[in-house]
Simulated scan of single mutants.
Amino acid sequence: MACATWRHAHAHRLGRCRAARTLRYVAPGAARHALRNREAMTARILLLGGTGDALRIARALGPEHVYSLAGLGRVPADLACAVRVGGFGGAEGLARYLADERIALVLDATHPYAARISANAARACAAAQVPYWALRRAPWQPQHGDDWRMVDGWAGAIETIAPFSRVLFTLGREPLAHLDEVPAHQHWTVRCLDAHAGHARARVIDARGPFTLEGERMFIEAGRFGVVVSKNSGGDATEAKLAVARELGLPVVMMRRPALPHAHRAFVSTQDAIDALATLVQHT
């Protein structure tokens, strides 16, 4: 009876009884070894990534699993798992891929603002009857001394920065599509993963985090920025800019996070996600 109860609980969490019948628990300390042990695995994992958190998870996966990247940024060359670059063709294309490749579980570790990718992944998993798990990185919280101006999107950000002359964008590539819209009284600095040439009123800096507190202090002071525009990405890699803005009394125009789909299991901690994936280790 105890065994049946254990199996039922795991089947409920995974949302897929067939997969749950073959699972066994792996202690957290053995999680990384279990995920990389090819002979012990039959259930395939599709990891949707593109973030530092996702890369850490990918490094724990064995060769039968797949790490999927949208094609932006560098493709890691030191992974044991397979790496797939490019889109799937929407939710329908991803559902076909899940069936064709016999994927048993999808873990969405994309950026918190990759709402369309997450929505397509959830729809595809529902269509293919594959469990959809997600890493939901905790957002930053304002601290004493912060001057955050909350906005819902690009239009709100542009309206809020109108009084400022020197603007630092840390939103990723989105501002690149608007470089021909820089007002005459403004100069934009856009930091993102792109070697764009920019122009007289817009400088584009190709840079990847993590960024240190000292480095951000020097960068922001040298740029004489009056405002910082940011997404609430969470995590440690790019948080230092917020501390510097707080020190210097700079306002931060913060874009609110988009709504994301419900996941069968959601994790705040990368290590918790790695440990949970280890429960997919099957008996040989």
Rank of each mutant, 00 (worst) to 15 (best):
residue 36 R to E: 14
residue 33 H to P: 00
residue 52 G to K: 02
residue 57 I to L: 01
residue 31 A to N: 01
residue 41 M to I: 11
residue 66 V to Y: 04
residue 67 Y to V: 05
residue 40 A to F: 12
residue 64 E to T: 14
residue 49 G to P: 09
residue 63 P to Q: 06
residue 37 N to Y: 11
residue 71 G to A: 01
residue 35 L to F: 12
residue 56 R to L: 03
residue 68 S to M: 13
residue 74 R to G: 08
residue 65 H to I: 12
residue 35 L to T: 13
residue 55 L to H: 15
residue 50 G to N: 05
residue 35 L to R: 00
residue 43 A to F: 03
residue 36 R to C: 09
residue 70 A to K: 10
residue 49 G to C: 08
residue 53 D to A: 14
residue 42 T to W: 01
residue 42 T to A: 14
residue 34 A to F: 07
residue 57 I to C: 02
residue 55 L to D: 14
residue 47 L to T: 06
residue 59 R to Q: 05
residue 43 A to I: 11
residue 61 L to W: 04
residue 73 G to K: 01
residue 40 A to N: 07
residue 58 A to V: 06
residue 61 L to Q: 02
residue 63 P to I: 04
residue 60 A to C: 11
residue 54 A to T: 08
residue 31 A to R: 05
residue 65 H to S: 10
residue 75 V to Y: 14
residue 38 R to S: 10
residue 43 A to V: 14
residue 55 L to R: 11
residue 68 S to R: 12
residue 51 T to I: 04
residue 40 A to P: 02
residue 34 A to I: 08
residue 37 N to I: 05
residue 76 P to A: 07
residue 38 R to M: 14
residue 62 G to E: 05
residue 63 P to L: 03
residue 37 N to W: 15
residue 59 R to W: 00
residue 47 L to R: 04
residue 53 D to L: 00
residue 57 I to K: 03
residue 56 R to M: 00
residue 49 G to V: 09
residue 65 H to N: 11
residue 72 L to K: 11
residue 49 G to H: 02
residue 73 G to T: 12
residue 46 L to I: 11
residue 68 S to F: 09
residue 57 I to A: 00
residue 36 R to W: 15
residue 39 E to D: 14
residue 58 A to N: 04
residue 34 A to W: 07
residue 62 G to K: 10
residue 67 Y to H: 12
residue 50 G to E: 12
residue 45 I to G: 06
residue 53 D to R: 03
residue 57 I to S: 02
residue 33 H to R: 15
residue 59 R to E: 00
residue 44 R to A: 15
residue 69 L to Q: 09
residue 62 G to L: 01
residue 69 L to K: 09
residue 33 H to Q: 12
residue 48 L to E: 08
residue 49 G to W: 07
residue 77 A to I: 01
residue 64 E to G: 08
residue 47 L to M: 04
residue 65 H to A: 11
